[in-house]
Computed example of a mutant assay.
Amino acid sequence: MNEGKIIKFYREKYKMTQEQLGKGICSGTHISKIERLHTEYAPEIITLLSQRLGINIENELIKLNTIKNRLNHWHDVIVMQLFDEMNLINHELEQEDLIQISDYINLYKLLRVRYLLIHNLTEEA
């Protein structure tokens, strides 16, 4: 299910149209349905699309699926005021592009504001 979200994220990141991505694999209409989670698809299609985008879909799925656990851990570290670990997790999450398409983007934004306020970065918060 998340494969479509990941495909769309990287397609847009690389400024490709659905037709460009699907050329020789499937139609742009089929890509649209995959991205919107409105169709079933063969795993081979996802593999071919992933190769064209230069990503490993299995690794991307793992990264996307671990975001919630990372955010919960960051919350605990913020509450306990473990500054070194807090800063490290903040840096890791800032580098994680997939957080933008995760189901936990709002939790990330709230924790990020809390993190910034703890560091007296009120303008950025």
Rank of each mutant, 00 (worst) to 15 (best):
M1T: 11
M1G: 13
N2Q: 14
E3N: 10
G4C: 14
G4D: 10
K5M: 12
I6R: 03
I6T: 06
I6H: 01
I7T: 06
F9Y: 15
F9C: 05
Y10I: 02
E12M: 15
K13I: 06
K15S: 15
M16L: 15
Q18T: 09
E19Q: 12
E19W: 09
L21V: 07
L21Y: 05
G22Y: 05
K23A: 10
G24A: 03
I25N: 00
G28D: 09
G28W: 12
T29F: 07
I31G: 00
I31T: 06
S32Q: 13
S32E: 05
I34A: 01
E35W: 11
R36C: 09
R36G: 11
H38Q: 15
T39L: 08
E40S: 11
E40R: 08
Y41P: 02
Y41V: 06
Y41F: 15
Y41T: 08
A42G: 10
E44R: 02
E44H: 06
I46K: 09
L48T: 01
L49E: 00
L49V: 00
L49W: 00
S50M: 11
Q51N: 14
Q51G: 12
R52N: 08
N56S: 12
E58D: 10
L61K: 06
I62Y: 03
K63R: 14
K63T: 13
K63C: 06
L64E: 03
N65W: 02
K68Q: 10
N69Y: 04
L71K: 10
L71E: 04
N72H: 12
N72G: 01
H73V: 06
W74Q: 03
W74L: 03
D76Q: 11
V77K: 01
V77L: 04
I78F: 13
I78V: 14
I78W: 07
M80F: 14
Q81I: 15
L82G: 06
L82K: 13
F83M: 12
D84F: 12
E85I: 05
E85N: 06
M86W: 03
N87R: 10
I89K: 03
N90Q: 05
E92D: 10
E92I: 02
E92P: 00
E94Y: 02
D97N: 13
L98I: 09
L98V: 07
L98A: 05
N106Q: 09
L107S: 14
Y108T: 01
Y108I: 01
K109N: 11
L110S: 09
L111I: 10
R112C: 05
R114P: 04
R114K: 14
Y115R: 00
L116R: 02
L116G: 00
I118L: 15
N120P: 04
N120E: 04
T122R: 10
T122L: 09
E123P: 04
E124K: 13
E124Q: 14
